[in-house]
């Protein structure tokens, strides 16, 4: 079993070393091979230099592609190098690598094809994001329920693991911006089962989130639209 942790990073020079240390600490004593891969999305800070200095396993995108294009590069790499499972893991120290095993095991056992690290089940995570964002996530969760009939709480979580079939699916087609909820629709509409796993998430230490208050209205409109259209165009694939 080969597992690849995909870490999209845009201007994460302050967080990337901690993130990799966190993952390497959790790499040992596993029954499967765990590799990581940083996708440096054309950062303008020292992210690239820091990765080279520390000899990190990294792909430096020659141009900035945005989160979707960056993550997809990881899935293409995973597909080309025959990885059995790919995990998405943010480079901003929000995610906790000790939960990687919890996300991987249900897929190895063949229970489901995709797992999502969730802040909103079992109350494991004290950090749950701001009230207004929680409301937005609740609405998107409802949209997912309406379009796919599946109930998933943390639809925007970027901490997720998928098996080989979904790696191939993502390698061939992946949304460019705000991909998380839309890819859930895609996966479910293609007939794969998704399971939420309780995880702890941290508040990010440095840098700010990519979604500002002004953008949040556009975000909700774009994601809702994308989920509805996605559910229509993927209908025949089940």
């Amino acid at each position: 079993m080969k597992v690849l942790v995909i870490i999209p990073a845009y201007n994460e020079s302050e967080n990337i070393v901690n993130t990799i240390n966190d993952i390497e600490k959790n790499c040992q004593n596993k029954t499967y091979q765990l590799d990581y891969l940083i996708i440096n999305d054309g950062s303008t800070d020292k992210t690239k230099e820091i990765c080279v200095e520390n000899n990190f396993n990294v792909i430096n995108l020659v141009n900035n592609l945005g989160i979707g294009g960056a993550v997809q590069t990881g899935y293409i790499y995973a597909d080309k190098n025959d990885y059995d499972i790919a995990i998405q893991f943010d480079g901003d120290s929000q995610h906790d690598a000790s939960y990687i095993n919890d996300l991987v095991m249900p897929i190895i056992n063949g229970d489901v094809k995709m797992t999502i690290g969730s802040r909103y089940i079992d109350n494991l995570s004290e950090f749950k994001s701001t009230k207004i964002r929680q409301l937005g996530i609740k609405i998107l969760s409802m949209v997912l329920k309406l379009t796919t009939k599946e109930k998933i709480y943390d639809v925007t979580s970027g901490f997720r693991a998928v098996d080989q079939d979904i790696i191939k699916l993502f390698a061939s087609d992946y949304p460019n911006d705000y991909p998380e909820p839309e890819t859930l629709v895609k996966v479910i509409k293609n007939g794969y089962e998704v399971k939420e796993i309780p995880v702890k998430m941290r508040e990010r230490k440095y840098g700010k989130s990519s979604i500002t208050p002004i953008k949040s209205i556009y975000y909700m409109a774009k994601v809702t639209y994308a989920m509805i259209v996605r559910s229509i165009i993927e209908r025949g694939n089940k």
């Binding site: 792909i59 995108l61 141009n63 592609l65 294009g69 997809q72 590069t73 790499y77």
Partner: peptide
């Protein structure tokens, strides 16, 4: 064009690695 451009950046970056 955006799709083609994205594909090019991805494949080139993987090749360079």
């Amino acid at each position: 064009l955006q799709e083609i451009n994205k594909k090019l950046v991805q494949e080139l970056s993987i090749l360079k690695k």
